[in-house]
């Protein structure tokens, strides 16, 4: 069994009296691709934010490649080699696609190599036609792709994606799936997602969150046929 690259131990997050995460222990191993699902308010996004450093957990630990990263600020987590895509497209609107991706590449590479990496990522994501267009002028799906470009440009060993397929066309989702599989060749991937069809097409193992805790962790088909999951997540009649 491959070694763990991401672990959380007894992770909890409270907002006043509201328990958003309750004692979550989670392990992701090298080369794994894991989807996190759950109904709204299940704690997926809070869990994601605790991993990325956007939130500091109330209790528990986050370990990346064995190193304790609990409470680290996002830039320190990312600097470890963690590629992050947030739920809402989070881009530099007044800058071009090329400049956006260059900024991600430059974080880990010298300037000249960052230029080459930017061209490579733009080709890989088929963004050549809009490379010089400002992000503010692009459609939602294109902006999502550029965010994936940030991740691809940083050559990460761990990728954390929050709803990467949201608001995208079928063609864009297919390309996105391809790129995620490519990333997964060299990096372990965690995806927070709602789109069940997308999850079926991309993941083998799924972790289901419910009321801030992990309900079940199984193969995708086992999860889909689990009566508990169908009850709380898909609805009884699904």
């Amino acid at each position: 069994m491959a070694e763990p690259v991401l672990e959380t131990q007894h992770l909890s997050m409270h907002f006043g009296g509201v328990v958003a995460l309750d004692n979550v222990t989670f392990t992701l191993r090298r080369g794994e691709l894991r989807c996190l699902i759950g109904p709204n308010g299940a704690g997926k996004s809070t869990f994601f934010k605790c991993l990325t450093g956007l939130l500091t957990p109330s209790e528990g630990h986050v370990l990346m490649q064995g190193e304790e990263t609990t409470g680290w600020p996002p830039h320190q987590v990312a600097a470890l080699g963690v590629g992050i895509k947030t739920q809402v497209p989070n881009v530099m609107d007044a800058l071009s696609v090329q400049e956006n991706i260059w900024l991600a590449a430059r974080r880990f590479l010298p300037s000249a190599q960052a230029d080459a990496k930017t061209r490579e990522v733009i080709d890989r994501l088929a963004l050549g036609a809009i490379a010089r267009t400002d992000l503010g002028q692009l459609a939602h799906g294109e902006r999502q792709q550029v965010e994936l470009g940030f991740v691809a440009a940083s050559d990460p060993w761990l990728v954390l994606l929050d709803e990467p397929a949201a608001g995208m066309t079928a063609g864009e989702v297919a390309r996105m799936t391809e790129v995620i599989h490519e990333l997964n060749r060299t990096a372990a991937v965690v995806i927070v997602e709602h789109d069940m069809q997308f999850i079926r097409s991309i993941a083998s193992k799924v972790t289901v969150f419910h009321q801030g805790a992990i309900l079940i962790e199984e193969d995708v088909e086992a999860v889909m046929s689990d009566p508990h999951v169908r009850n709380i997540y898909l609805g009884k009649k699904a």
Partner: peptide
């Protein structure tokens, strides 16, 4: 320079630049 281009990136979106790995 890289410093200036990164500064403009920070002006545009501090959170994103932080998530890319820059100490804003």
């Amino acid at each position: 320079s890289s410093f200036g281009r990164i500064a403009v990136g920070i002006r545009e979106n501090e959170t994103r630049m932080s998530l890319i790995g820059y100490d804003v």
